[in-house]
């Protein structure tokens, strides 16, 4: 059982890392979600598996014995809730960003850090105008027209 779980964690982590390195924004977020699920399984596995014995220390015994530790199971519930909330938040962000940018290519989304147009100096932001010529706004316009 523990080996099956280890395999699942390994495959999940590998798939999650692979997807989260993608330039496609949606794949990236889904990848992080899968990676989070793999780690949740890891948390679950940290408390011993493959037993149905109740987690009660028997009278006279100093240790739990073969029963599964319930604490990681409580921790994983917390982690699942947090992970779910963060996945929802990131999905909303991605959808909004894709709507605004009209692209889902992470390399093309350069609103916060406009690519340099001059070899030595960073692009200059025109006051009163969110994006200046030569910054992604212009590229965005052309992409929208395409």
């Amino acid at each position: 059982m523990i080996w099956a779980l280890a395999l699942a964690v390994g495959i999940g982590a590998a798939a999650g890392v692979y997807l989260s390195l993608s330039r496609d924004l949606l794949r990236c977020v889904v990848g992080l979600s899968i990676l989070g699920s793999a780690v949740n399984l890891l948390v679950f596995a940290a408390g011993r598996l493959s037993t149905t014995a109740p987690p009660i220390v028997l009278p006279g015994a100093a240790e739990l014995g073969r029963a599964a530790n319930p604490l990681p199971q409580a921790l994983v519930l917390t982690a699942i809730v947090i992970g779910f909330a963060l996945t929802c938040l990131s999905l909303v962000l991605v959808v909004r960003l894709v709507q605004v940018a009209k692209t889902d290519d992470a390399d093309a989304v350069r609103f916060a850090e406009p690519p340099p147009i001059d070899p030595v100096k960073p692009p200059i932001e025109t006051p009163g105008q969110a994006v200046a010529a030569g910054t992604p706004g212009a590229a965005l316009g052309s992409r929208g027209a395409r």
Partner: peptide, 27 residues
């Protein structure tokens, strides 16, 4: 603003990776 959404997503993705690693190591 578009710049803020862009910034928020990059911030979230990289920090989310950090917290996932944190959870794994704590566990």
């Amino acid at each position: 603003r578009p710049a803020q959404l862009d910034a928020a997503l990059k911030y979230l993705v990289l920090n989310l990776f950090g917290t996932i690693l944190l959870l794994a190591s704590v566990t």
